[in-house]
Amino acid sequence: MSKVASPLQIAASLTEFWSPRVVAELDESYVKVAKVQGSLAWHSHENEDELFLILKGHLRIEMEAGNVELDEGEMFVVPKGVRHNPVAEQECLIMLVERKATLHTGDVVTEKTRSLVEQLRPV
């Protein structure tokens, strides 16, 4: 049986930016939370969509076709194969829903890239 969790409280408790943590599993997907600020990296996920839900703050998702601005309570799905770069001018708390096979920064590796092992660490 699953346990009750508060994605907002868990995200707020994180001490590292851009280091998502898995907080639940849903079929073949993970539910993750993260505390973000600044820019992540331009990347894409060739075979996976990625859902962003803003728990607190504001997030801009830059894409080659144009930017999407998201405020608290809003969500957006980046379609598979679309190059994107999440940016938060101020601290922002987010929830992500991704397939278990989704790599953190997709087709690129940077100093901010986190492995699945790191994302599965206890909060």
Rank of each mutant, 00 (worst) to 15 (best):
V33F: 02
L51G: 03
N67Q: 03
L55I: 03
D49N: 12
V33G: 07
E62Q: 14
L59T: 05
I61T: 07
L40P: 09
F52V: 11
G66K: 09
N67T: 09
W42R: 04
I54V: 13
L59V: 01
G38C: 11
I54K: 02
R60N: 03
E62R: 15
L55V: 12
F52E: 03
M63D: 12
V36R: 00
A65G: 09
A34R: 13
D49Q: 08
Q37V: 08
E46I: 15
F52D: 00
K32L: 02
G38L: 10
E69I: 13
G66F: 05
H43G: 02
F52W: 04
M63G: 04
D49H: 09
E46G: 13
D71L: 15
L59E: 11
H45T: 01
G38K: 11
L51C: 04
G38I: 00
L59D: 08
V68S: 02
E46R: 14
E62A: 14
H58E: 14
L59K: 00
K56H: 07
W42I: 01
F52S: 07
E48Q: 13
R60E: 06
Q37H: 09
E69W: 08
L70M: 03
H43K: 04
V36S: 08
I61Q: 05
K35Y: 07
S39A: 14
A41R: 01
H43T: 12
L40E: 01
N47S: 13
S39W: 09
G57I: 09
V68N: 11
G57M: 09
M63W: 06
E46Y: 12
H43W: 07
E50L: 06
Q37N: 06
L53E: 00
F52K: 11
G66D: 05
N67S: 12
K56Y: 07
M63S: 06
L70S: 10
L70C: 00
N67Y: 00
M63A: 05
A65L: 03
G57T: 10
G66Q: 04
E64R: 15
A65I: 09
S39M: 14
S39L: 15
K56I: 05
E69G: 04
E46Q: 14
V33H: 02
H43F: 09
E69R: 10
K35G: 10
L55E: 07
F52C: 03
K35R: 13
D71S: 15
A65H: 13
I61P: 02
H45I: 11
L40I: 00
W42F: 02
G38R: 00
F52R: 03
E48K: 11
V36C: 00
V33N: 08
I61M: 01
